[in-house]
Amino acid sequence: MQSGTQARKYRLQGAGLDLALPYLMLAPGLMIVLGVLVYPLWDGLRASAKAYRYGSPIADVGLQNYMHLWSDAQFLNSLWVTVKFVALSVSFEAVLGFALALFCLHEFRGIRLLRTVLIIPMVVTPVVVAIVFRLIYASDAGMLTALSEAMGGGAVQILGNPLNAFIGLVVLDVWEWTPLMFLILLAGLQSLPHEPFEAARVDGAGAWRVFADLTFPMMRPVLAVAIVLRTIDAFGTFDQVFVLTRGGPGEATRLISIYGYDTAFKFQQTGYAAALFVTIGLVVLALAFSAIRLLRRVDAS
């Protein structure tokens, strides 16, 4: 009896195996992550300081790969295309998603159907989304061409024209990801306190005043988080472009991820591609951390 209570006491304070428990529980996950993510990350850093020929390292070149990036016209172009793509897509998604969330805030018939249907674009495999849009844009089999011919017009050229292909890619991204923006912002709107809005209604404020003075300022943090999340995600876009245009025509839709992939697997310049990816990683991390810091400052004030 005596020893039983003693043992119980030790257990509560954490004795024996229980002392090691937190480490034992953390270990498996950490080991997998260290082996499959962190080691490769470090290996990538090492590879980025080497020159490769036919996939095997031939010389240490220090930071030369990194320097070379900034005089590589194809890299600079892909960076520019990526920035344009991210800025345009995310802006449209934010505006449309916000508008849709405001629209759906009031309960009415058909809203559940709408919310359910809006889940589809973001859960469909990105490769399939790209196939769907190829089927829309294709000049021979496409929906746009079929519609145009049904109305007496000719074939519609989208993917063969640099500007149209780029716009087509942005449209794809907006179709796929506006629903996510919508869901996040709707959840944000639903979590806002009721009192200020009731007070405004008592005061007889118009819809625009309520939006500009109450809704928008109160939604700013959620909006910022949603935009940051989408921006980080959009920076790594690969699948959709790979299937839709493969980066073409020319370099019109060649995002940085596609250029990096080609550099590594098509042109076998492993070291140079590694340097490119390390640079992207650093840019995204810097972006994320400055966004977090900015958000904290907004929260504090």
């Binding site: 993510l37 990350l41 290996d43 980080i232 990096g260 390390v278 995204v284």
Partner: peptide, 8 residues
């Protein structure tokens, strides 16, 4: 982004 560690 996952693409960063694709090569390694």
């Amino acid at each position: 982004p996952p693409v960063v560690i694709l090569i390694p």
